[in-house]
């Protein structure tokens, strides 16, 4: 039996250049995504929702709590600064999310409800699953209200990993609550040209072997987008989003290999 894999287009709605890249990938390039991950609170989220609807690809809700460029949907609260922008993460490199310590649980619940309502309104149906943009639901403070929502709405949830690594306490809690979930999350693709060779294929082998060595369902996050000044100035993941477009146009055999090696599924297929 082939390992099961969800191929997620990550961060739809993040910025204009990201949306244009997604639209381009979905309309002009060969198939890749089995899921789209839609952000609810960016200035470009409404456009992202339109792209998701037109694609007919299964779309999950990517709750957003710590991206300081975006505003909370519930206005000023313990989650935000005095202008309503979400508090920033002090240091993503060290995965320091201590900012969540100061979040009031009541504000978290309200924001979760608002982001969920936004999704229903703009996509017109329930999300295929509940996830968080940076995996913040690996923190129990975010996870517990999210579990309540998942159970109430009978929705699957991405594995509550931490820094995309195993996070037993949170993962076992989700499983014990009977929520369908994944168990591994990998960010693709990262390649570079050494002095004498293109290493994309090698990196691809790393991903394939990680999936094969793993029990349970893996989710591969694919960043997608063009890169304009807005994106470049506001996130550390800017130009990297162009890699997937390049692979789809010029090295599609790598994506075909994913479809050959794995059973590509959606969140709805989780058992």
């Amino acid at each position: 039996m082939k390992p099961q894999v969800i191929l997620t287009g990550h961060d739809l709605g993040h910025s204009q250049a990201v949306n244009i890249g997604f639209e381009y990938a979905l309309t002009k390039l060969p198939k890749v995504f089995s899921e789209l991950s839609l952000l609810p609170n960016s200035p470009y989220s409404v456009d992202g929702a339109k792209i998701a609807k037109e694609s007919s690809i299964s779309t999950h809700l990517s709750f957003c709590f710590t991206t300081s460029r975006f505003k909370a949907l519930t206005g000023i609260s313990s989650l935000t600064d005095s202008q309503g922008y979400l508090h920033s993460v002090p240091n993503v490199d060290t995965w320091d999310f201590s900012v969540i310590d100061t979040f009031d649980p009541v504000d978290i619940t309200k924001e979760i409800e608002a982001q969920y309502e936004w999704f229903l309104k703009h996509v017109g149906k329930k999300p295929s699953a509940l996830v968080t943009q940076k995996g913040e639901h690996g923190d129990p403070k975010i996870l517990e209200p999210l579990i309540k929502l998942a159970k109430a709405e009978n929705l699957p949830m991405r594995a509550p990993l931490w820094n995309w690594q195993a996070n037993y306490g949170a993962q076992s809690l989700v499983e014990s609550e009977g929520i369908k979930t994944t168990s591994q999350f990998l960010v693709c693709f990262k390649d570079w040209q050494k002095s004498s060779g293109y290493d994309l294929e090698l990196d691809f082998e790393r991903i394939v072997s990680k999936v094969k060595a793993h029990q349970g369902v893996s989710e591969l996050a694919l960043f997608c987008g063009f890169c304009d000044q807005e994106l470049f100035d506001t996130t550390s993941v800017s130009w990297q989003r162009g890699q997937l477009l390049n692979i789809l146009k010029r090295k599609y055999y790598l994506i075909e290999r994913l479809y050959d090696e794995f059973e590509i599924i959606t969140y709805a297929d989780l058992t």
Binding site: I20, F226, C227, F232, W239, R241, G242, L245, N246
Partner: peptide
């Protein structure tokens, strides 16, 4: 450079231009 649809379609060197900008 930045990477837009025009660059992407006309050059195999596309997202790497933004990499080089960084």
């Amino acid at each position: 450079g930045y990477n837009d649809q025009e660059t992407f379609e006309s050059s195999s060197l596309n997202y790497e231009r933004s990499r080089d900008l960084s």
